[in-house]
């Protein structure tokens, strides 16, 4: 059942959510970009371009304390959050990324830190005419608890989980009965076909080493492509001793760094920039397909935006297809 919401209804829904959850909503930042932040802590920016900071960083932050070991050997866990998280304002790629991370972190043995945040959390999609200058964002579907779809004159609410249904219950039914009635999504976005074509080229081994060398020569090792990627899940562990207490944290890692795979002897199975560049693309387009049955890039475009030298995923994929496709 679809619900119909006016702007006031939506604001009322936010108030309700904020009572029960640690509600994170898109906020407008001083330089004009948008990112998730706590409801009430800044200017709400419901619609607009892709969120600058990947929303997955709220579930898996760049630096995160895991535990502390006291001088007497006892272990302390960080205090749990008071309320579960609610992430509001996610578009289809954001939700696909969270689904991707869920599968990785929650498969056995589950990552308890991630699980602690994800359990009881609520994901709220915001799609329809909610993009930059009211651009159309395809509906997200069942990767969320509930979805709000911007139409010309209001919002359609669509619940996918019990929690989502409860939250939408107070609002009137809409005239549209099925979400598909307003779903204008093209059969398959162009990005998907590009990724598939590139994946095929790699699996068929049509891309020579010289290509990777040429791309790698343009990489300045900023690590940005990994850090902004919502499906990158690699982290390393950092220990610091403060007043006799060991603080163990995890921090985002990057496969573009030499030390990512370097062994204590100094030997490195990914010892050249060309190999590491190849891995960055290969992992998403081949290794993930082999492991999970689907491509690991959800086509958010963040790595292309953050790569200082223009060799993000789609730039590389396009060059690869041009040269070898």
């Amino acid at each position: 059942m679809l619900k119909s919401l006016k702007r006031e209804d939506l604001l009322r829904l936010l108030e309700t959510l904020a009572e029960q959850y640690d509600l994170q909503v898109p906020l407008k930042l001083p330089d004009g970009t948008r990112q998730l932040g706590r409801y009430g802590s800044g200017e709400l920016s419901l619609c607009g371009p892709l969120l600058q900071r990947k929303p997955t960083s709220l579930l898996f932050p760049q630096a995160e304390l895991l535990l502390s070991i006291n001088p007497d050997g006892s272990v302390e866990q960080p205090h749990p959050a008071e309320k579960p998280l609610a992430l509001f304002g996610l578009e289809r790629s954001d939700l696909a990324a969270i689904a991707f991370l869920d599968r990785f972190f929650l498969c056995e043995p589950a990552d308890d830190i991630y699980q602690g945040k994800r359990e009881n959390s609520l994901l709220i999609g915001l799609t329809g005419f909610a993009g930059e200058n009211s651009a159309y964002l395809p509906p997200a579907g069942e990767n969320c608890d509930l979805e709000l779809i911007a139409t010309a004159d209001g919002w359609l609410g669509c619940a996918y989980s019990a929690a989502g249904k409860t939250l939408l219950a107070p609002f009137p039914d809409s005239e549209a009965k099925e979400r598909t009635e307003i779903d204008q999504r093209a059969a398959e976005p162009k990005t998907d076909s590009l990724l598939k074509a590139a994946s095929r080229l790699l699996r068929e081994d049509k891309v020579p080493d010289a290509f990777w060398q040429e791309i790698a020569d343009r990489c300045i090792l900023c690590t940005g492509c990994n850090l902004v990627c919502p499906t990158c899940s690699c982290f390393c562990v950092q220990d610091r001793i403060r007043d006799g207490k060991t603080e163990r944290s995890r921090v985002w890692d990057s496969c573009q760094l030499d030390a990512f795979m370097r062994e204590a002897s100094g030997h490195n199975p990914l010892g050249t920039e060309a190999l590491r560049t190849r891995r960055r693309i290969h992992h998403k387009l081949v290794a993930d397909v082999e492991r999970w049955g689907e491509i690991g890039c959800i086509a958010c475009g963040r790595c292309d935006r953050t790569c200082p030298t223009g060799i993000g995923m789609f730039a590389v994929v396009e060059e690869m297809i041009n040269q070898f496709g």
Binding site: L29, L221, C222, G224, L227
Partner: peptide
């Protein structure tokens, strides 16, 4: 502090940083 995010609209930064900035 839990991390760094480049300023997307800043004329020098344009959503990009080097490894030290990150």
């Amino acid at each position: 502090l839990t991390g760094v995010e480049p300023a997307g609209q800043h004329p020098t930064t344009r959503g990009q940083l080097c490894v030290k900035g990150w």
